[in-house]
């Protein structure tokens, strides 16, 4: 009678994409890769220039390798954003864990140094959790503050360990730089990690509470949820994830510094947002964030290939993030 078929179809498509937000993102990722291949033929499909293999496992491996730490930090953002929070200390925490691990391992050995690194990270998370969950400081302010404090502590710490030198555990080097069948060894950490996060979000009581707190904290409280417990656990978990990402990144970059993983922070927020996570809470997907991290890496490669000056690259990077997010909101009708 009056159901215009086109309206119906577009509504249905919108709803389908809304329920499966990863699909348009993957399409966009493929589009970018095609653009890359057109700009520099043979980069991704070496067969066209006579090398073997249909796709360059080297290039794809490299893409994945550098997307992994970004995707792990994006997990911190997705989880905290679900509760309408954010973790701005994640980059610093990753750096702290990497630096502490590298400087402590000559003194105490590999195993204990990793433990110490993770505990240092978890400590920052605990402070974040207490601040935002119990004292109710806004997570943006809280994690910004603890991030700065942790940076300061790291500088003080550096003076004490300056003579001990650094050593990067061989295991982390293997994980960070090694390859198996052309794919980065980092996947041995990342695949179980990703399954764990996806399972946590969808099939665990804790995951359900994250969504509940972000949708309507009052309703969660009414249902008997003690939100401070959830938030403390969440920020500790987020910092442990950031620490793991930092350790992996250490093995990848191989030179510990006082700002090692810091530049990954804002891209991790961008990856989460591009991946369809709402900063207002209650909606988010880690699958989307993984694709978001891949998209950011491809864009980065694309801009490097264009041989643009650094300033222009950063500008275009920002513009593309805004454009992707706007397009995404349009397609799926969500914020």
């Amino acid at each position: 009678m009056k159901d215009t078929p086109t309206v119906q179809a577009s509504v249905r498509l919108g709803r389908y994409l809304r329920d499966n937000p990863v699909i348009p993102l993957i399409a966009f990722l493929l589009l970018l890769i095609v653009a890359l291949e057109i700009m520099k033929p043979g980069m991704i499909m070496p067969i066209r220039v006579g090398r073997n293999g249909i796709f360059s496992t080297f290039w794809i491996g490299n893409l994945i390798k550098f997307a992994i730490p970004l995707a792990m930090l994006a997990a911190c953002q997705v989880l905290t954003m679900l509760t309408s929070g954010i973790d701005l200390s994640a980059g610093v925490v990753a750096t702290v864990a990497a630096f502490v691990c590298a400087t402590a391992s000559p003194l105490v050995g590999v195993g204990p140094s990793i433990l110490i690194a993770l505990s240092a990270g978890a400590l920052v998370g605990l402070v974040n959790g207490i601040g935002s969950g119990i004292i109710r400081v806004h997570p943006l302010i809280m994690t910004l503050g603890t991030g700065l404090i942790a940076t300061g502590c790291l500088q003080v710490y550096q003076r004490f360990v300056i003579s001990t030198g650094t050593e990067i555990p061989g295991f982390l080097l293997w994980l960070g730089t090694g390859r198996t069948l052309g794919m980065p060894n980092g996947l041995f950490l990342f695949i179980p990690f990703a399954i764990g996060i996806l399972g946590l979000m969808r099939y665990s009581g804790f995951g359900r509470l994250l969504f509940a707190l972000g949708s309507n904290e009052h309703a969660a409280r009414l249902s008997g949820v003690r939100s401070w417990q959830v938030l403390v656990a969440l920020y500790v978990l987020s910092s442990i994830i950031a620490s793991l990402a930092g350790l992996l990144y250490l093995g990848m970059i191989r030179t510990p510094s006082l700002s090692l993983a810091n530049p990954l922070l804002l891209p991790s927020v961008a990856a989460a947002v591009i991946g369809g996570t709402s900063i207002f809470g209650g909606r988010g997907s880690f699958g989307g964030a993984i694709v978001g991290a891949l998209i950011l890496r491809v864009i980065d490669t694309l801009l490097t290939l264009l041989q643009m000056p650094q300033g222009a690259r950063i500008m275009i990077f920002g513009l593309i993030i805004l454009a992707v997010t706007a397009m995404y909101v349009r397609i799926t009708g969500q914020r």
Binding site: G205, R208, A212
Partner: peptide, 13 residues
């Protein structure tokens, strides 16, 4: 929602 509220039920649903 109330089934997951207590800390002891944060595990698998």
């Amino acid at each position: 929602l109330p089934f997951s509220a207590a800390g002891s039920s944060w595990g698998p649903l």
